[in-house]
Design a protein around this nucleic acid. Structure first.
Lengths: 146, 146
DNA sequence: GCTTGACCTCAACTTAGCTTGAGGTTGCAG
DNA sequence: CTGCAACCTCAAGCTAAGTTGAGGTCAAGC
């Protein structure tokens, strides 16, 4: 017998550590696809384990599900992605990580000279008002560090 | 006339770039305190501008409001915090940033050797299953990269 | 001394990312 | 061929972090 190509939702859940309900949710959101048995049960590809793992890692990096969906959309639908497919997506990921590290490093540098010196309350503070446009229009705390 | 010690909610909002509704919300959550006029309007300390700025910066770093509240709780209530107070909190902050950078750096390193090589779907993958305890109890995708 | 913009409360709504529960069906092991 | 764990759908609920709106009050400038 050939190695089973399809796995149940429960198997996908236990292999990735996410709840069955979360997997259904991801599918609903378009991050996963599945086939159905004649009895209407989902069947996933083994390679979806990797796909879910990727979702988890990307979430860790702070990506929203919608952004993750965009990344995953570059993978071939329906067939098992090749290592090369994953490598490409992985490069994007590394770039995201790089820029997050850069941002954090810069923030840390500013923090040293800013909260430390007590200038945090001044409008000219670089850390929270980098472009001198506070009190701008629009709701939400969007004026900071963008 | 002495410089005004107290500012209105609108002033605090415009000086920090956050919405008035958000400031009320922060107060409700215990991140800010205010006095009231005889007519029941809020009056904040000027130093609350700094406090709100801190909230915004901390949010940027990914802290939840509840965590930020914990940080802020180490500041003196009711009186204007000294530069030294802020320096202390700023050190904590820097430590948090440091550990986030470390985590990202490690994740990047693993990503190189993991998604890149295609092992992401294997249970032994370090990246998504560092301690070999997948399928653990409890809801949510908590088994990954903790 | 009035007008008007800024302020007040309270309740309901929003988005993201899920979980929980009710009520019903499937599929595999014995 | 039966029992029961695992699956199904759909609706409702939850937390975080706010926003929006209704209905009403305050205070400061003319």
């Amino acid at each position: 017998m050939t190695a089973e190509t399809f796995i149940t939702i429960g198997k996908l859940a236990s292999r990735t550590g996410v709840a069955v309900s979360a997997i259904r949710f991801y599918e609903e959101k378009g991050l996963l696809q599945s086939l159905r048995t004649s009895g209407n049960q989902r069947r996933f590809l083994r390679s979806d384990i990797r796909r879910v793992s990727f979702i988890l890692i990307a979430q860790r990096l702070g990506l929203a599900l919608s952004e993750i969906e965009a990344e995953l959309a570059t993978l071939p639908e329906g067939r098992t992605p090749s290592p090369r497919d994953w490598q490409k997506i992985s490069r994007n990921m590394r770039d995201q990580i790089d820029s997050r590290i850069t941002l954090l490093t810069r923030t840390r540098a500013k923090l040293e000279g800013c909260i430390g010196c007590g200038c945090l309350s001044l409008q000219k503070c670089q850390l929270y008002n980098p472009n001198d446009k506070l009190g701008a229009a629009g709701p939400g705390p969007r004026a900071v560090l963008d």
